[in-house]
Write a protein that binds this DNA or RNA. Structure first.
Lengths: 150, 150
DNA sequence: CATATATAGTACGACATCGAACTAAAGGAG
DNA sequence: CTCCTTTAGTTCGATGTCGTACTATATATG
């Protein structure tokens, strides 16, 4: 096996590991979420609650790393559930702005509590230590990949 | 903000970081793959080439962390492209066994070369060092989550 | 042997996501 | 002012994935 193949093997293994962790944690999150709300939808509510609402769909799509069409779909789902309101942007005739409803806020708060309780069962001291140990490296890797996407 | 919420915030941030890395690396891989082959399909070919073919769909599904129905679908796609062959298991009337075709092997080898070349452009010494630094912790986290899924 | 339980794979429907093409509005160049 | 380019959001079709329910075969229990 030559160098190129060895390099490929190592990098594949690395991203495969990350992919599996992502898959397992997403599945776990999905099971903790009530009412058939998809993790990606919850993520949008969480984003709006943490960083403030009144963002455009395009801004949210960039933050969530999904395409605009996906965001259109997700916002429709959240809007149908009355967790958000989407209003025209008074400053820009093309744009829209997304606002959390009181119902959306309370749903998000309840979900946070539920998910925290569920995760606490399997996330012990060792895992917390591990998380803190590699958190900085993960952030660096994320930023590097984000800055180098074509 | 109380402890529960702080814990939730930290864990969310951690898995969000992993999710974004996974999303970016998967997108990158998808762009390197020729012929519209999905990363998950490539992953199956790679698995069979590395660990040997003649596995059952169920074994592959477990290794890839997807459901049996997803595997049925993926194997049909790969079979239609003549990258694999699915034959009945002579030992078990219910089972099937999956084999790589010569075409599948050469496709996989070519894809490895292409993807390696593409990744080498953005994966420098710093990233390789980072990968080796946190690889063990990622593996431990993956195993922990895998052992504790409900 | 007969029945019950478990396992391999499939069928069906639902849904999240994507890429390409489109509409509408904003901004810039002449 | 007019035309061109860019940007925001949507529509459409395709695809990967999942959960539930199903069939067929194997294995265990009595």
């Amino acid at each position: 096996m030559n160098d190129t193949n060895g390099f490929a093997k190592e990098v594949f293994g690395f991203f495969t590991e990350i992919g599996i962790i992502n898959q397992l944690s997403t599945t776990l999150l999905a099971k903790s979420l009530p009412d058939g709300v998809h993790p990606s939808h919850f993520s949008i509510l969480n984003h709006l609650a943490r960083l403030g609402d009144g963002k455009s769909p395009n801004q949210i799509a960039s933050a969530m790393q999904v395409t605009k069409n996906t965001m259109t779909h997700s916002l429709k789902v959240l809007s149908d559930r009355t967790y958000i309101e989407v209003r025209p942007d008074p400053q820009d005739g093309r744009g829209k702005l997304v606002y959390l409803t009181p119902s959306g806020r309370s749903f998000r708060d309840g979900a946070i509590a539920q998910v925290s309780a569920d995760f606490a069962h399997i996330f012990g001291a060792d895992q917390i230590a591990l998380m803190r140990r590699i958190g900085g490296d993960l952030e660096a890797m994320r930023k590097h990949l984000d800055n180098n996407r074509q």
